[in-house]
Design a protein around this nucleic acid. Structure first.
Lengths: 204, 204
DNA sequence: GTCTATAGGCCGATAGAC
DNA sequence: GTCTATCGGCCTATAGAC
């Protein structure tokens, strides 16, 4: 639970000869480029400029490594979420956050990984629930402050904070996944639709 | 390209001693239960009641196997899609189809697999595009026949066939993925929301 | 902390007999 | 088509020297 200054230690971990952070960085990069299944102690070590046995000194098992990567990711996500929710255009910033290719891509890899890694599964499950409830709470707060219109979007159709949170998360995931695959059919139209909804919500 | 009677050869492949179909079935089951990364020639063979070397007789490489599984899946999907689109309640049936845990789960595994398997990638990419355009075409047709209301859903908010297709696909994927993970927070509310929209669309 | 060395396992794929 | 046998490779993880 040590909160190592995530701001400074993040980027150039290798140059600063911080092996632990270099391993985490390398793991993330491999997951994004080639998927979780491509993560092996040897490949990660090579990427980080280390020998594979050293990886086992910092992380005894590969599960330990995956867990550490995920927890760092979650800490960063919490920071970004708090900043977005506290901004002048919270809905728009939350949407932007969900559309971040790196973090969303990693979450999707971890979700896939959870399918068949028992030790990971509980972690992801808890995180997914927490994230959903944080979004619902944030949207509820924004609606309460009149930040979202209770107009034709809300009452007639019945768009609750829960439904809106799930819609935003779903669409963002699809757009990010498909983009990574090189498929973007209909994306421009969807982004224009989202933009229209954001403007509508913000015009309160 | 041989169209082997997909109806009859599907289910009890092992009992009928149809090794090829038994291998395809076993691969699908492993992908759904443990993810694409858990698929190995030995595990598939064991599940199918065969020796692993025999797998290489029917499918020279593992890529060949994955491709065959996907193509069978796509053929089945086409059948189901056509039946749904031609039914009395096409939108509802298309939604049901998207919510099928098995087929949607497999598609998600293949999408993840495509990230780092060159031979698979092109296949999935083409299929994703085709599926999107089929859905858009179907929804356009339904709207044209007055099967979907052009009311508050459509014009004011700007819900086009493309946007509706992307929304449906996105939400269904999220619900299926999260359910598989054991997370269902907000799902009941979302399903109720969808049901309300379906009724609204059908009341034409 | 970092090194060398290595145990022990599962993997994809092929050769060749029947 | 199905069998036996097997090669070479990459994997996780540990032991033990420095």
């Amino acid at each position: 639970m040590k909160k190592l200054s995530s701001r400074s230690s993040q980027r150039k971990a290798e140059e600063k000869s911080n092996p632990r952070a270099a391993i985490l960085d390398a793991t993330e990069r491999i997951m994004l480029e080639a998927g979780y299944a491509a993560v092996s102690s040897r490949k990660v070590a090579t990427r980080a400029g280390l020998r594979s046995q050293l990886l086992h000194y910092y992380f005894r098992t590969m599960d330990d490594l995956f867990i550490a990567v995920f927890q760092r990711l979650e800490d960063q996500h919490d920071e970004h979420f708090a900043r977005a929710a506290a901004s002048d255009h919270p809905i728009r910033e939350l949407w932007k956050l969900s559309m971040n290719p790196a973090s969303t891509g990693l979450v999707l890899e971890f979700t896939a990984l959870a399918t068949h890694r028992k030790a990971i599964r509980a972690l992801i499950e808890r995180s997914a629930r927490r994230d959903r409830s944080m979004h619902v709470a944030a949207i509820t707060g924004i609606m309460g402050r009149g930040g979202i219109g209770a107009q034709d979007l809300s009452p007639a159709v019945g768009l609750s904070p829960t439904v809106l949170a799930l819609l935003m998360a779903s669409v963002a995931r699809t757009l990010v996944t498909e983009s990574a695959l090189g498929v973007s059919d209909g994306h421009a139209e969807m982004l224009a639709f989202v933009e229209r909804q954001l403007r509508r919500m913000e015009s309160r």
